[in-house]
Simulated scan of single mutants.
Amino acid sequence: MSNGSAIRSVMLFAVLLAPLTHALAENMQWVTTDRTDRRTCPSTKCGVAGHLMFREGADVLETKNGWSRITKAYSASCEGGKSEYVKEGNSACTSANGIQNGKFAEWVQNGDLSPNRPEDPRQGATGDYSLVSGSDDFRLYKDQFAKAARQLINDGTCTEGDFKEMGGWMASTNRGKGMYFTYCGGMTLSNKVYLDSNSGKVNR
C-alpha cells in the first residue's frame, strides 16, 4: 500500500470512528443521588445486583419507561433457580425478574441520572478530611469520617498512612445501612475497623 493510500485509510477510519465516539460521549450519564440500585430489569420489583454511587458514570444503552439499561446481558450465575449476582431483593431466575436464558442486563432509574456530572465534594478537602476524601458517601458523612479517623489515629489503632492507602471508609454490604469500614495495619479481617455513621462509634 502506498503512503497516500495508507493516509487515506487512516483518515477514513477516523471519520467512521468519530460519530461512534461522539455517540458514546452523548450516552454517558452521571449519578446525581447518593447511590442508585442496579436492577435486573426496569422495575423496583426486580433484584438488585449492586449500586452506582454519587458521581459514578454509566453508558446508557437503552431507555424504557423511566429506566436506563447500562450493561449488555451477561450470565446471572443461576444456581437452584436463583442468581448468585443478586445482592438484595428478588433473586429468582425468571423472565419476570429480567433473567432470560440465564442472563440479565442491569437497569437504573432515569431520575437518578444526569448528562451533567455533579460537582466533586472532595475537591479542596484538607487536613483530616483529605485523609478520608475517597470514602463512599463522603458528602454525607465527611464530618463523621474525619472525626473517627482522627480518633483511631490518636489512640494508635490506625496511622495517617493507613487512611491515605485506603482512601477512607467504604460502605459495608453485610452490616447494613450507615455502616462503613476501613483497614488499619494490614488487609486481613483482624485489621478491619467498622464505623457506625449514625452514632459515630468505631469497633472491630
Score class of each variant (00 low, 15 high):
154 N>R: 12
155 D>A: 05
163 F>E: 00
168 G>R: 01
165 E>Q: 11
132 V>P: 04
177 K>I: 13
172 S>K: 09
133 S>W: 03
144 Q>V: 14
182 T>Y: 09
155 D>W: 04
148 A>I: 10
162 D>Y: 01
180 Y>K: 00
131 L>Y: 06
163 F>V: 05
133 S>T: 03
176 G>S: 03
149 A>P: 13
167 G>W: 15
149 A>L: 09
147 K>V: 13
151 Q>P: 01
147 K>R: 15
165 E>L: 09
162 D>V: 05
180 Y>A: 06
180 Y>V: 02
129 Y>M: 07
128 D>I: 00
167 G>M: 15
183 Y>K: 11
146 A>F: 05
147 K>D: 14
164 K>A: 14
152 L>D: 08
146 A>R: 02
135 S>G: 02
137 D>G: 04
178 G>V: 03
148 A>K: 10
174 N>T: 15
156 G>W: 11
167 G>D: 14
135 S>V: 00
137 D>Q: 10
159 T>R: 01
174 N>F: 11
143 D>A: 13
137 D>L: 09
137 D>W: 06
143 D>F: 06
152 L>E: 12
167 G>A: 15
169 W>C: 06
148 A>T: 11
144 Q>C: 08
167 G>Y: 15
171 A>L: 14
132 V>S: 09
130 S>W: 01
164 K>V: 15
147 K>H: 13
159 T>M: 02
158 C>G: 13
128 D>P: 05
183 Y>V: 08
165 E>M: 06
182 T>F: 11
158 C>N: 12
160 E>Y: 03
139 R>W: 00
151 Q>S: 14
182 T>Q: 09
162 D>S: 06
182 T>H: 09
180 Y>E: 02
170 M>F: 12
157 T>Y: 07
183 Y>W: 12
139 R>M: 00
181 F>H: 11
144 Q>A: 15
138 F>T: 06
154 N>M: 08
137 D>M: 09
154 N>I: 02
146 A>H: 01
162 D>T: 02
178 G>R: 04
150 R>P: 02
130 S>T: 05
140 L>G: 05
177 K>Y: 14
137 D>C: 10
152 L>G: 08
160 E>K: 07
141 Y>T: 08
159 T>H: 00
131 L>S: 05
129 Y>W: 05
182 T>W: 09
